[in-house]
Design a protein around this nucleic acid. Structure first.
Lengths: 206, 206
DNA sequence: GCTATTAAACGTACGCTGTACGCCTACGAA
DNA sequence: TTCGTAGGCGTACAGCGTACGTTTAATAGC
């Protein structure tokens, strides 16, 4: 009998993500989100309790299509690799939400489902008890770190250029490596780092 | 001939860190920092250009005693391990500044010196060209991710407890792993993950 | 001892943020 | 047609970073 809602949470999340993609994380405010939807600021509070909940909505929206079924790759390390690639692919178009995702990693349902699947693969591969804890944490630490680096602009960005311009006397290797780094593609960087972790994981179970 | 400064940047940084340790990152504001020092808010701007520069000062202060000489461990992987332990030890008492450190990783001198040393070790171990780039990025990604996880409260914190309370029907392994996780010490978790990365790195060069 | 000079320190103010609170209004059921 | 419910909106407040102008303290030169 009450007045019907004029907005579904999906549209709210999509608008917030659009702002983040366009203006960065700092550009997202309750006012800017409301303006994007053509509503008044306080109208948003009919849909979210506070800004924190809006950010959670953003996280869920970005990962809404994340496939969390067990991949059918033959080897378990490749299953893990595929799972990581799926996350990275979902975030590719919305890199700036990565910090939000890390902050909300324990509350975001999609992340929990993804983690459950990773644990399924690890368990089938023979990990259990403390080893499984360490394996999961190590993998997630790398994934978070790598995604965050990309989100903050790792290779080829202004940060790398600053390092490339460092005085050769104080930082010869860093300067050299930064110059070399701009020639490494983002995909190669991510896959190379992931391969390191996967090799280390494989050595744990054999 | 002018009026002498009543404050050295060191004291400013120390005060800011004290606030962060006590009240968290959100507790640090220009006003709270000034109050901590018994000065007026605007007086701080004689020492830093803006809040960003204050945060950089915080990063430098936290790592002011970081030893960036090449460790004398016999094996190169142990040198890397020691270098990572040194960073973690410096941050142990000030975990909440980790996000600041990651954001300022390209500008903080201590981080740059540390990275140069890591590259020295990697180079001596035989890494060069793209491999060295990938090795460094992978290691740093893990380190950042692991430190960030600890900073946000990884094991035994409320987040883990939430996961441990998840419905067994939907998240059997996640629930079980979270319950097991509280028995793994922070040191073991960090070292276990680092060992994974180091094994993967060693496989790269042999 | 006095004064002029210089930068430190401070006070005020502005636009921004998240959001508590209260009012108005559109809608569906009766 | 009327009423109850909840959606939508406007106002207001505390707190943020900081631009700008004024005041104050300490010293160099006389």
């Amino acid at each position: 009998m009450p007045r019907p809602r004029s907005l579904q949470p999906d549209r709210l999340a999509a608008a917030a993500v659009a702002i983040i993609d366009r203006d960065g994380l700092a550009g997202l405010t309750m006012r800017s989100a409301a303006a994007e939807l053509g509503m008044s600021t306080m109208a948003l509070y009919r849909y979210v309790a506070d800004r924190d909940e809006l950010e959670l909505l953003v996280c869920e929206w970005v990962l809404r299509d994340l496939d969390t079924t067990v991949p059918d790759d033959p080897v378990w390390t490749e299953k893990i690799k595929t799972l990581c690639h799926r996350v990275r692919a979902s975030l590719a178009a919305h890199q700036r939400v990565v910090p939000l995702l890390i902050a909300n990693r324990q509350r975001c349902r999609a992340v929990l489902r993804w983690t459950e699947t990773v644990l399924t693969v690890l368990t089938q591969a023979g990990f259990d008890d403390a080893d499984r804890v360490v394996a999961l944490r190590g993998l997630v630490a790398y994934l978070n770190g790598a995604l965050l680096q990309e989100s903050l602009g790792s290779l080829g960005g202004p940060g790398t250029l600053v390092m490339a311009a460092l005085p050769a006397a104080d930082f010869p290797l860093l300067r050299d490596t930064a110059r070399r780094a701009v020639t490494v593609s983002l995909d190669d960087e991510f896959d190379g780092g992931l391969a390191i972790v996967l090799r280390g994981l494989a050595a744990m179970v054999s």
